[in-house]
Nucleic acid binder design. Structure first.
Lengths: 235, 235
DNA sequence: CCGCTAACTTATCGCTGCTAACTTATCGCC
DNA sequence: GGCGATAAGTTAGCAGCGATAAGTTAGCGG
């Protein structure tokens, strides 16, 4: 009877058409992603929970993913695509390279704060992935777009010309530091998070540019002297 | 027979003295910490594994810790103490405030890279902790020492005088960004990690100081103009 | 209508965190 | 020495986890 008190699965999927077994896969990924977003702690995303959300029994998951890590990796790919879209939207129509860099960074942090569990999974969890993850990261859309903007900044004379990769890493680390710290310790008095992020990102870019001005790798004395000089000139 | 193939526990602790049940607690923490350091993935630290390492049965753990999270929290406290010690050692004898700041930051990143699983547990895992964790973080030794050095930098005129907390947060985020990203994506071509950290930390400090010079919260135009001006003056 | 097989299920294993209930060693005390 | 009291630690077991082996069912070609 339909109103039974047993915990029988309420909704059972119809079996897929003969050739279209693959249609279940994206549904599984979406269910896992939604489950991750809905529950604060990541280990609430169990194979069993995902299976029930999709309306299928747990072993069916393994017809589409080798193990749980592969499923989560698929979720991560999805998350990165979403992040890239958010960044592109934020940078749309911003002509100045430095402005676009800022827009990207702010969008990055904003995305992380809005989807903390997704961001945590994508960037903080020890996710054993396939071999060529180097390429997967370095060629991901968001990273490529970000680095291209760094190149634009170099062309505009904002950063010293050279290999954009280290600078991109530095700015990425700055954005990630803000995002991950705010996510990991949300109870600390950060104040307005967007303002905090803006200040940190601006400082990072400014610091990189200024470091270039001082000759790439300035000694502490040079930095201190320069700061004193600037301070004197400003007053 | 003593050489049987059964998985019988090889070492069984002697029962503790009557009043000294508490002596097991630090041993449990140490075992958990060592286990975490030895195994790459954090969930290899199971109650059963810890119990066996100490030479005790699993339920005995619960005589000293309410649950697994409490045990891990105790490990985190230990880790933070170790981090603070490392930072203090690194800053010892460095008189210049900016130099001490740099020494602290480098020691911070170095510690994180040397003890990735410890650092991950302490700063990246969603650790449900007791109520007043705000105080626990803000009054932890390492944070206090770090912020004091920021104050020293303000007194020395390196940073604009004011509330040291936001600046400390910013610099912490910079250090954490570098540390956590290097830990999370160790396969990326960071180059020499200490150099990368030095550059990022220097840039962060420089960026904060320069941001102050430009009036606290400069607009993009001001920043771009200032950079162009500096560039012109330098050439 | 039949057999093949893709798609999915049932049943189960070994593991986990955790708990209830039991045992044992050590203590002060007589 | 013997004796309860109780701290310290055990055995046995629960529910839930990821994962697998083996069975079942539905749809399609012939």
């Amino acid at each position: 009877m339909s109103s039974g008190t047993t915990a029988r699965k309420p909704v059972r999927r119809r079996r897929a058409q003969r050739g279209s077994g693959e249609q279940l896969r994206p549904e599984i990924v979406k269910a896992a992603k939604d489950l991750l977003a809905a529950s604060a702690n990541a280990d609430a995303v169990s194979i069993r929970a995902v299976a029930e959300a999709v309306g299928v029994t747990p072993p069916s998951i393994y017809l589409h993913f080798e193990d749980k890590n592969q499923l989560l990796s698929a979720v991560v790919v999805d998350v990165f695509a979403e992040l890239d879209a958010a960044m592109l939207t934020a940078g749309e129509g911003v002509e100045a390279p430095l402005g676009r860099l800022r827009a990207f960074g702010l969008a990055y942090v904003k995305f992380a704060v809005s989807h903390p569990e997704h961001y945590r999974l994508a960037t903080m969890d020890p996710c054993p992935k396939p071999v060529d993850e180097v390429d997967e990261v370095l060629r991901s859309s968001s990273f490529v777009h970000f680095m291209q903007t760094v190149v634009d900044c170099m062309d505009a004379g904002i950063f010293a010309a050279g290999d954009p990769l280290p600078v991109t890493f530095q700015l990425w680390a700055a954005a990630h530091g803000i995002a991950s710290l705010v996510i990991a310790k949300p109870y600390l008095p950060w104040g307005d998070i967007e303002a905090f992020a803006d200040r940190g990102l601006c400082a990072a870019a400014l610091g990189q540019a200024t470091g270039d001005l001082l000759g790439g790798k300035p000694t502490l004395d040079v930095v201190a002297a320069w700061l004193a000089e600037q301070k004197g000139a400003a007053s």
